[in-house]
Amino acid sequence: MPAILVPTEKWAGKVREVTLGGDSRKKVVVGGETTLPFLHFDGVIPHAPAIAIDVEDVAPQNWSPVLGAVWGDVMREGLAAWARKAVEAGADMVALTLRSADPDMGNTGPAEAVEAVKKVLAAVDVPLIVYGPGIAAKDNEVLVAVSDAFAGKRLALGLCEDKNYRTIVATCMANGHIVIANSPIDINLAKQLNILITDMDMPGDRILMDPTTGALGYGLEYTYSVMERLRVAALLGDSMTAMPMILNPGREGWRFKEAKTRDGVPTQWGDLEGRGIAWETTTAIAQLQAGADILVMRHPKAVGLVKRAIASLMATNY
């Protein structure tokens, strides 16, 4: 029998470990890999990728009807109920978007933001990710308030971009939170932002990077390779790309007509529900293979499928 010796890769680098939550609450640790995703024969993978589920502080207007069908009731019931149902659906974390702070969605302020976070923290004991409404000035306003109000809870706060990184990084540093550094689908820009943030003396193990999710058919090929390159660079020993990666297959996967439109689309697209879920899971599996450490998802069935896949990928006894 010919002897086949499998060459192993011994990488010099290691992905940083980031701990979310904790204190009196559950904690989730991500990162710490010394190998490419799920290649157990090359190195160690101390923590499985974690799944967060999206919730918003006001019922979303334009989500896909498929999501409406599963979340509709709890969305109307309120934030606490929604967060609880998310954890029931398998979420390791809850990702809260402070949508109402958007000037077009109510333009609420710091007080309401703190209130919303308080509700979620009271309803569930998993770690919490908090996103601002995505407008730099408003993000700064509400995230600083949340950061101050919940000092020491190790929330992950975002998005922090090269335009406004100073404010968010400063508040996360002061209050012991995690910062989510977002850059537009480019390995260099992602690394540059990490350097800028660490130049402010933020510890490297309190940064998650979000290299921007391009959904299946909408830039996935770019995101995929940017992630893969970031991870290879990290394992080669580049400490400025070694932050765990957080991606949003839920938000992006459900944004386009492929996951939203039932009628008036080609019959080859097939059934909407199955298609929408597959759009989210396919985006997610690609990101897992490229190095995602946290996936923020939306549909419970998609979460179930991806969690089973992760379990298989983490097993070493096949």
Binding site: E221, G270, D271, E273, G274
Partner: peptide, 20 residues
């Protein structure tokens, strides 16, 4: 074989096999 699975799968293949 189901169209709602074939479509995302083929889209993924197209994405992954484009010239980066």
């Amino acid at each position: 074989f189901a169209p709602h699975h074939a479509y995302p799968m083929l889209t993924l293949r197209q994405n992954i096999y484009t010239d980066p």
